[in-house]
Design a protein around this nucleic acid. Structure first.
Lengths: 192, 192
DNA sequence: AGTATAATATACTATACGGTACAATAAGGG
DNA sequence: CCCTTATTGTACCGTATAGTATATTATACT
């Protein structure tokens, strides 16, 4: 290395992640990216490869961050029921508080790219599968502490909760009346 | 009308619907459309307006067809539990039978366009809201016949089922192991 | 039959896209 | 202090895009 990079690669990647998260792959142009990242086009290609490689790198960073966030939230409360309740409540609250969030980058990618690119089908599937494991471990914790009934299937329930999470996240993009989502969350939590 | 249109407008619209359904709005080019519709570009603009207007028309046709399909399926069996079981089973079976379906056009649009265009936010919201009504009426039928318990909230349960439907449809795009989806469906149906 | 009018086909526009060639620049090693 | 080498800025490339001008064709009405 004879000349040092002038920009922070991780900060630039975060900026790219934000743009892809909000707009998706197709609707994001290289101009959108270079503006958000505050770098020139050749610097982008040198540091991250082409548009799709940059997207993949951004998505992988997102899934890691997302999994860590969820893991922390689920472990934040001793009561498993309270942990799930808090998790879903925050999700809904964040969406209805302001002008709306870009939802989940991974879910957006599942819809836009997974059907036509196996690479993204795999990345998104593995992430959702991992979330199911996180949910399952949390439910098993509740069973061990006696908070939850012993006869429930932690795995099946966890997978069902992931499906509900996906459904809620996507439904909120249409901004239905809040009671719609609150009711769905309440019914989902009644499974615990 | 002095010269008659040479193509079948409804057939052309169906072809456009199929393309938008599979590829989404951004990834569909006018060339994709005119080839699928077997018409020339000026004919498209004359008959359907620009790309976005055509997309909207196609989406509205889809939601009407989709609602009618679901209504029929739910009314096809005297048992409400059997009706829902059949509905979700068919949904999963169709996806895992072959190479995969394009999912739900309305859900795809919720993810791609609803966050950045209020028009599509409204269209998709109204469709999902209508599906919840269809589900609710079906559940109420089950309560009246005595098949389902009287103390359940048909509305809340229906809204939760719609969320599960959305979640399952989106999750399947990542093609997880079939047991994942089957388990989620089983847990969802256990609410009835 | 001739004419008005709408649908068609060809060809074109202006623009935006992803990606890159090339020259200028800046730092570390000898 | 020069020379090597990686990064940067500018300017560009070919292509694909959405949309349209124009001329031609075909029908229904007078």
């Amino acid at each position: 290395m004879v000349r040092v990079r002038e920009f922070d690669k991780e900060k630039a990647l975060d900026a790219a992640m934000q743009v892809f998260w909000e707009k998706g792959f197709e609707a994001t142009s290289l101009t959108d990216l270079t503006m958000a990242m505050s770098i020139q086009r050749p610097s982008l290609y040198l540091a991250f490869g082409d548009k799709q490689q940059l997207f993949e790198t951004a998505l992988r960073k997102y899934t890691q961050w997302h999994a860590a966030t969820i893991r922390t939230k689920l472990q934040s409360k001793p009561s498993v029921r309270e942990a799930f309740r808090g998790f879903f409540s925050d999700l809904v609250e964040e969406e209805y508080a302001g002008a709306g969030t870009p939802g989940c980058f991974c879910i957006n990618t599942m819809v836009e790219l997974a059907p036509r690119d196996e690479k993204f089908e795999i990345i998104t599937r593995e992430h959702q599968t991992y979330l199911a494991v996180l949910f399952q471990e949390t439910i098993e914790r509740g069973i061990h502490t006696g908070e939850l009934q012993q006869d429930i299937s932690a795995k099946k329930l966890a997978q069902s909760l992931v499906v509900s999470l996906v459904g809620i996240t996507v439904m909120m993009k249409a901004r239905p009346e809040r009671t719609f989502i609150d009711n769905a969350v309440a019914v989902t939590l009644s499974l615990l």
